[in-house]
Nucleic acid binder design. Structure first.
Length: 692
RNA sequence: GGCGGGGUAGCUCAGUUGGUUAGAGCUGCGGAUUCAUAAUCCGUGUGUCGGCGGUUCAAGUCCGCCCCUCGCUACCA
């Protein structure tokens, strides 16, 4: 028996679980369930990643403590994952006593070993917010190309990277003030001391070949020591003997894997040290996305090594999720949260679809929604479940639900199915799930062909062939049972229904060896509904058409209310919207297709169940009244709007939304959130006038 | 700009160290069947293997250039 510890990357406690996260947790969960089915010990740990500036700022915005925020998000995340049958042995949090102790130990051991140094770093500091600003919280003009309103670290226009201190006209994205430069002592982890070790570790097969190549690039460029401290205020753990200094969130995040394990060990009477302080008892695997390769294959093994802990056996990296071939996007409606999916569709559809496309490589995975519907319906309902569905009826109608008394002659089909288990297991173990699914579906085809050849519906017409009829159905049900064992890691719920149907104890991988006969089975009940295309459609319905799509995902943060003497935030102190690249040239005819009208706002009211929307009733002159949903609630109080004029896109196709039909959109400038500014025509314009 | 990954049938993807007429599943189309959730079974693919050029007896598979796309570009994550 193997002893295996597995993790998925910790989701950040600022934001909802979406279908991208689920590529990883489903991949990991399938692998874990497979190992358990094989009879190995396999422990699966995860947690919320809770620390850092974004969580701190968001809590401040919501007027609650970071701890409260983090607890709420933890409950949401856990329930989302459970909805997808993710079988964690423990889903913990990095904001825990175990994580604090372990982080301190990792740090102190490294300090003891001479792996920590202190240097002075010059950084942007906001005097208003009284904090050092992370690069992402500074905006200004790109020092290279001059593009306006770029992040502190990189320019989206010329895609160059730069230091936030080089930005022209820098501003704090929290309050809009100009930051000052200030020195601060920072603690660094000497990553450079671990180059030899890391190269050996990587060569030991710890990462996939293509990731090893990527790491070689980084080695060639030269490793740099790692800044592991941040100045307060910072939501995180204070560094021992360094008042006001906190561990950078990425230092304690992966330690959260260990903390989750430790907390579980305490509840189950297991020896934490035997798992993490020696490497000969358990295998340790991390499943991650390629965006966090750096942390998991350089910093993480090095900090563990430097602190005297074991290092991971391997880190398995997967690619990103695309939806219909494109990056997930809120404006296209393809930024689909786990919760939204669960409101509409069976989680096992997605588990199967992902499994059907996952490989051991780092390729991106495309969720093509049309393909999704066809694939799931065809494979799962049409092929697999159908085998049981078409056989069980006879067993009940003719034999009172009792299978043949002995396992019938089947031309070696059962043996063939059992033998295929070797190859399928090898695919699962190698994380080649798509190959495993292909192999299983080939078996399902064989089973259907067997039924076809025996034609039980003809046997049923001849009373003399009663035994043959029962034999045929018994074989078919046996084949179905083996398929469900093979599919259990992917479809735990369906496998459960199958066990109930066949009145069987829990499956093990080897239970496929023993055929089923001489017993009664339950009446067949539907096990899985077909995918409803309408539900898939509503999955991608967009919710807030007015927010300019390109900016919807940008952090928009309100000015903090804390400093007492602060001036009231005025509209002149704003975070200017980023300057997006110029759009494609447009001829005037195309532009002319857009029917812009002056509209008078007659009424504006909040929409129940939507926190960003206002329902506007507009007077558009001879076009009559129109109802428009606008995502401007954060920027405008409803009572301030009636009576004012604005601009309506009048011939926009009506959009069915959860709350009603939106018959156009009003135009606004700005980056979204509370940074939105409605357009107003000059004096003299009247409702209904065409704008051109 | 530099580096790297992709670009193969309508869709999703396989294609080993270059070698017979480039494959699978799904869809579509034709037929069969009716036990089954209009499921199943049989039959059916003339694709410029992104483009151009080169090496070779032979290239999707090697080399060069170009196009499209995604990503990385170090104290950002």
């Amino acid at each position: 028996m193997r002893r295996i510890l597995v993790t998925s990357a910790l989701p950040y406690a600022n934001g909802q679980i979406h279908l991208g996260h689920l590529v990883e947790t489903i991949q990991t969960d399938i692998w874990v369930r497979f190992q358990k089915l094989k009879g190995h010990e396999c422990l699966y740990f995860c947690a919320d990643d809770t620390h850092g500036t974004p969580v701190m700022i968001r809590a401040r915005q919501e007027g609650i403590s970071p701890e409260t925020l983090v607890e709420r998000i933890h409950a949401e995340h856990l329930s989302d994952f459970q909805g997808f049958h993710i079988g964690f042995d423990n889903y913990y949090t990095t904001n825990s006593p175990e994580n604090r102790l372990l982080s301190e130990e990792v740090y102190l051991n490294n300090r003891q070993a001479g792996n920590i140094r202190v240097s002075t770093v010059r950084q942007a500091y906001c005097e208003w917010d009284q904090m050092f600003l992370p690069d992402r919280f500074i905006r200004g003009n790109c020092p290279t190309c001059g593009a306006e309103d770029q992040y502190g670290d990189a320019c989206e226009v010329c895609s160059g990277s730069h230091s936030p201190l080089d930005l022209k006209n820098p501003r704090c994205s929290l309050c809009g003030d100009t930051p000052v430069e200030r020195d601060s002592e920072h603690y660094f982890f000497r990553l450079t001391a671990f180059e030899t070790f890391l190269k050996e570790w990587i060569r030991s097969g710890a990462v996939q070949p293509e990731m090893a190549n990527k790491l070689d690039e980084w080695f060639e460029a030269g490793l740099q020591d790692w800044d592991i401290s941040r100045d307060g205020p910072y939501f995180g753990f204070e560094i021992p003997d360094a008042p006001g200094k906190y561990f950078y969130v990425w230092l304690d995040a992966p330690i959260g894997y260990m903390a989750s394990c430790w907390e579980w060990c305490k509840r189950h009477g297991r020896d934490f040290d035997a798992i993490w302080r020696r490497d000969d008892l358990m295998e340790v695997y991390h499943f991650i996305g390629k965006d966090i390769l750096y942390f998991h294959t350089l910093f993480w093994p090095a900090t563990l090594r430097g602190a005297g802990f074991r290092t991971p056996t391997a880190v398995y990296t997967h690619g990103f999720l695309t939806v219909n071939g494109q990056k997930m996007s809120k404006s296209r409606g393809t930024f689909i949260t786990a919760r939204r999916y669960l409101e509409l569709l069976d989680p096992e559809y997605l588990r199967y679809y992902y499994a059907a496309k996952l490989t051991a490589r780092v390729d991106d995975l495309d969720l093509n929604l049309d393909d999704f519907i066809l694939r799931v319906n065809s494979d799962l309902v049409g092929k697999v479940v159908n085998i049981a569905s078409r056989s069980a009826g006879f067993i009940h109608k003719r034999f009172a639900g009792r299978l043949a008394e002995n396992y019938p002659h089947d031309d070696g089909l059962h043996d063939q199915f059992v033998a295929a288990g070797e190859e399928i297991a090898a695919h699962y173990d190698a994380r080649e799930f798509s190959k495993a699914m292909r192999a299983i579906m080939n078996l399902a085809d064989l089973a259907n062909r067997f039924v076809e050849a025996k034609a039980p519906w003809n046997l049923a017409k001849d009373p003399a062939k009663s035994d043959e009829l029962r034999d045929t159905c018994t074989v078919a049900i046996n084949l179905f049972r083996i398929l469900m064992i093979y599919l259990q890691p992917v479809l735990p719920q369906l496998a459960e229904k199958c066990r109930d149907f066949l009145q069987l104890p829990p499956f093990g991988w080897e239970s496929r060896l023993q055929p089923l006969y001489g017993q009664t089975i339950r009446e067949f009940a539907h096990m899985m509904a077909r995918v409803d295309p309408k539900k898939v459609e509503s999955l991608v319905e967009t919710v807030a058409p007015v927010v300019p799509p390109a900016f919807a995902a940008k952090p928009v943060v309100a000015k903090p209310a804390t400093p007492a003497a602060a001036p009231v935030a005025s509209p002149s102190v704003v975070t200017p919207s980023p300057a997006p690249p110029l759009g494609e040239p447009l001829d005037i005819e195309t532009f002319g297709q857009v029917d812009l009208r002056v509209a008078k706002i007659l009424a504006a009211e909040p929409v129940d169940g939507a926190d960003k929307l206002l329902r506007l009733t507009l007077d558009v002159g001879e076009l009559g009244h129109k109802t428009v949903f606008a995502g401007i609630r954060a920027a405008y109080a409803p009572e301030t709007l009636p009576g004012r004029l604005t601009v309506l896109v009048a011939n926009l196709k009506p959009r069915k939304m959860r709350f009603g039909v939106s018959e156009g959109m009003v135009l606004a400038a700005g980056s979204g959130g509370d940074q939105l500014f409605l357009l107003t025509p000059d004096l003299g314009a009247a409702p209904g006038m065409r704008i051109r």
